[in-house]
Structure formats: C-alpha cells, structure tokens
C-alpha cells in the first residue's frame, strides 16, 4: 500500500456560510433586519421578548424564531403576544445553524415584517461561532449568572453589537458588581451599548426599544 498526501485548505464553516449568505440576500430583498439573541439557559431571553412584545410591535412589525433543544414552550409564550413565531428544535445541538434558520424564514410571511428576532439555543459558546445570516448578535447576561461572565466567554461579547443585562431588579439581593461587569465588557468590545433591563417590571425597555427601532430603520 502506498499513501499520498493531498493539501486542500477548505474552510469547515464554508457550507454554513453559504446558507448564511443566502439568508442575507433574502433579508436584503425583503428589507428585514435580523437579530441573533445569545445567552445562557435562563438568562431571560424569552422573558425579554415578552417584555418587548407589545411596545416594540407598535414601532416595527417583527416575528420571532425560537431556538431550543426541546419543547415548544417558548413559542407558545411568544404566540400569546400575537407575534408571529416559529419554533426551531435543534434536537440536541447546542446552537442554530444557518440552513435551519433560512428554511424557517421561507415559511414566514416576510412581506409583512420589518424585523426578525432569533432567540438562539441557550448557550454562551457555540452560538457565537455559527453565523446564521443575522445583521447583529446581541449578548444577553442575567444578574444571577455573575459579573465575570464576559471574561469567561469573551468571544460572545467580542462578536456582539450590544449587550443586555437582565434581571437588574435582583441587584440589591445578589453580590454582582455592575460597574465591574460593564468594565469587563468594555475591555472586550469598547464600542457596544450596554442596556440594563428588568423585563418583568418593564425597567429599561424603552431605551432598548428605541435603539432596536432605530437599527431596524423604523
């Protein structure tokens, strides 16, 4: 037996990138702005969308793609707001991939939308790796998770265009240094805005809605 070495240099993300590019073309054609919300399980991503629901809906026509490993629980919550929603089940995978998102978009009435919010599978590592064709990524971090998370998961905060600190009503009860946390984020990505919200009480949502509406061109 003889062996032969063949040099190739093929990008492994190539197939995913092709689908992400198709999605970007589709979104450009339909003039839709797409967000990719990334944070750990329990960070409050779905509660944030529930909080944004009605008020954001007055400014932009938006739909939600819910990414989860299992169950349609989150899609049921979003549907109660009267917002168009599709549930994407990753079936064990820790993130959404571009092909899956593209096909979900094709099933939506895109002519009736200005914005699509993708809630990625709860995880701070893998979703930051996979381009799904979004315009911006947004990192979601809740107060109970700890103020050092930006240092532990720097890629997410580096790739994101905004950070949202959720559950800020818990600050009086939990040892979380919010200024230190914001400092950690600024040391990874100096430019991004950092929003502080409590979705259940509505605190801080007006600023976030104004920023999102502005980005979507509403």
């Amino acid at each position: 037996m003889t062996t032969q070495e063949i040099k190739v240099y093929r990008d492994l993300m190539g197939a995913n990138e092709e689908w992400a590019a198709k999605t970007r073309d589709l979104l450009a054609e339909k003039d839709i702005y797409m967000l990719n919300l990334i944070g750990s399980p329990g960070a409050g991503k779905t509660a944030l969308l529930e909080g944004l629901g009605a008020q954001l809906g007055e400014k932009v026509r938006f739909a939600v793609l819910e990414g989860d490993v299992e169950t349609t629980n989150d899609a049921v919550r979003i549907a109660k707001l009267g917002v168009p929603v599709s549930q994407l089940l990753s079936g064990g995978s820790c993130h959404l991939e571009a092909k899956m998102v593209h096909h979900a978009l094709l099933d939506m009435d895109l002519d009736a939308l200005d914005m699509v919010v993708v809630e990625n599978v709860g995880n701070m590592v893998c979703p930051a790796e996979f381009d799904i064709g979004e315009h911006i990524k947004i990192a979601v971090l809740s107060i109970p998770e700890g103020d050092d998370k930006p240092q532990k998961y720097p890629l997410l905060f580096h790739e994101s265009n905004a950070a949202i600190l959720t559950k800020v009503d818990l600050l009086p009860h939990i040892p979380f240094d919010i200024e230190a946390c914001k400092g950690h984020i600024k040391k990874i990505n100096a430019q991004i805005p950092i929003f502080e919200v409590c979705a259940l009480k509505g605190d801080g949502l007006a600023e976030l809605i104004a920023w999102l509406s502005d980005r979507a061109g509403a």
Binding site: M1, T3, Q4, E5, I6, K7, V8, Y9, R10, L12
Partner: peptide
Amino acid sequence: ELFLQSLEVKT
C-alpha cells in the same frame, strides 16, 4: 482558523 488542511489517502 477552522480548515481542513490535508488528507493522507491510501492508493
């Protein structure tokens, strides 16, 4: 980087 760099095949 995340590249398939080379293959060594049996001939």
